[in-house]
Design a protein around this nucleic acid. Structure first.
Lengths: 108, 108
DNA sequence: TTGATTATATCTACATAATAGAATAAATTC
DNA sequence: GAATTTATTCTATTATGTAGATATAATCAA
């Protein structure tokens, strides 16, 4: 274990990609994060982070087909990789450990 | 809500400070994090982060008395503030939201 | 078949956070 | 007061995070 160090925003984006189950792309990922945070998230920030995650092998992307919707450039769809899932789980385990130390302090 | 943006490592350090219940200082905080992560954490990284957290008002520090132990400089002891606890809780809520979206995908 | 419209992705430039390791400081002990 | 111990602060560099402007590719209307 103990692989890639994961930045804070990277972790959020990774979770969002996972939550969108392979069908997420820039805009929906951004929206999902905004829903969760209640804050504005710029799409540029999301893409920069997705690129970094992809370089690290934590997500993969493929171009979506040309849908018969309303126009616009083709989507770049993201899905999480096995290593991405591992990183996600590891980050969670660490945080659980730290939270647990707060709620149940070891007695001398 | 929606206060300070909290960096990833900042969040971990904040949790460690909380876990050490007001008696944590550079070295013990580092140790606590290393235990959790299994990775090496440099003490310089910890202090830099503590300073940032203090500037943001999420932790406070006081100098420890001169203990009758074995020597060495006095400790700078850290405790979490109310705002720190709020930030901590907020970060957790956000992550729970994102995790929940993974485990229980909304059906159309 | 061109121009307007829409949806999306990429680029650019800058700000903030993370990091390791060296240097410094303050206490104790002999 | 020199050596030892424990802890903090400094320095310099790299990695992440961020917003907004710009570019691209699709559809639709005439």
């Amino acid at each position: 274990m103990a692989e890639e160090r994961l930045g804070g925003f990277e972790e959020l984006v990774l979770l969002a990609v996972a939550g969108l189950a392979g069908d997420g792309y820039g805009v929906t990922i951004r929206d999902h994060l905004e829903e969760g945070t209640g804050n504005r998230v710029s799409v540029g920030a999301v893409y920069a982070t997705l690129d970094r995650l992809q370089r690290k092998g934590l997500v993969k992307s493929r171009m979506g087909g040309t849908t018969a919707e309303r126009g616009g450039k083709r989507k770049r769809l993201f899905r999480i990789t096995g290593r991405g899932q591992a990183a996600m789980a590891e980050a969670r385990t660490l945080r659980d450990y730290l939270w647990n130390a707060i709620q149940a302090p070891a007695r001398s």
